[in-house]
Design a protein around this nucleic acid. Sequence first.
DNA 1: ATCGGAGTAGACAGATCGTTCTACTTTGTT
DNA 2: AACAAAGTAGAACGATCTGTCTACTCCGAT
Lengths: 193, 193
Amino acid sequence: MNVLIHSSSSNLEKPSAARERILRTAHTLFYREGIRSTGVDRIIAEAGVTKVTFYRHFPSKNDLILAFLDYRHHLWMDWFQDALQRYGHNLPSITRALQEWFADPAFRGCAFINTLGEMGNSMPLVAQKTLQHKAELCKIIENLLPDNSDKADNARAIAMAMDGAIIRAAWGEPEQALHGFNQLVEGVCRLTP
Amino acid sequence: MNVLIHSSSSNLEKPSAARERILRTAHTLFYREGIRSTGVDRIIAEAGVTKVTFYRHFPSKNDLILAFLDYRHHLWMDWFQDALQRYGHNLPSITRALQEWFADPAFRGCAFINTLGEMGNSMPLVAQKTLQHKAELCKIIENLLPDNSDKADNARAIAMAMDGAIIRAAWGEPEQALHGFNQLVEGVCRLTP
DNA sequence: ATCGGAGTAGACAGATCGTTCTACTTTGTT
DNA sequence: AACAAAGTAGAACGATCTGTCTACTCCGAT
């Protein structure tokens, strides 16, 4: 019951089935077990490709890491926007979306937070992609806020609260995470009604 | 100008100078560069000990990782409590303490968030120590809250906001992190005045 | 018909990983 | 004086890491 499903059958422009399999496998393993503890050999084996094929598409593991983040970005954004729509596309729908995500057995926190935390400053592009990801998230949150409030500011605060909630949920306390998140969001909204 | 300084001269009960050096070196490297990307060979070299000495104190790298978290816990808690006292031991003093921390050139986010994110579920004790760390932090925050409010609940929400701020600061946006954190704290406090 | 791009299978190199080992020296306690 | 704990120096282990290489197959477009 994965909530974040891979759009498997969009091969109309043929972006290489092998490449897609590598990327999906890398996504699963990188997200579940971390970047460094996942060797390329394992990705290659589980994706069912050969080394030559792998290195043809991704000249180095670093290239795969960056592609993984792009892949993750689109996957997560698509799911999140869809979830918001399904839950009413208003402020409370964020909580419902998070609840859905936290309940996913594959949930293991935010891939960007985890990756940046693991890689440190050794890959500047990771930090850059992380910032882009969160900037886009802020824009989406902005659209859920009423016009009279200071939208950009409040959206950033809510995004921060989201990260805090995601981390807490990753520690195995999803209920407390959602409760605390609601508290924080409610508080912020009361400040600029 | 490290804000988190190592209590170097507390060798009255002699916990082995070599052990202390290994632990300090591991702390620096693990925190700055991550766990898996820091090999024991490098720790051994930079700590100026030999392999035998290293493995006498820490039978495996995993033991060192856990000791690192304990070490970090005490180091950070001591600094944090001291900073709170210095800034007035009230709610706003949290922000000042965070500001001080974020300005530290060695700042690279929360060691527990980073480590748990990197290790995943491969080391259950890491998750356990992380929860203990944050539980203790919540208790400290509780003591800063007025009596009439729902202290435990609010402390947890504030701790969550702290984590969000820490992450944002680790991405290189300390001012936005502090601003958002203030917003969130102010909002929570207005809910239960 | 043919040529190139993308695939398969798997050996291999060179570095680094965590860990163990032998052999010797210093230091503190009894 | 003697002994044990804790230190030094450094070789070596097997495993695993990323990345390269040769040799062969398949298939679609020209």
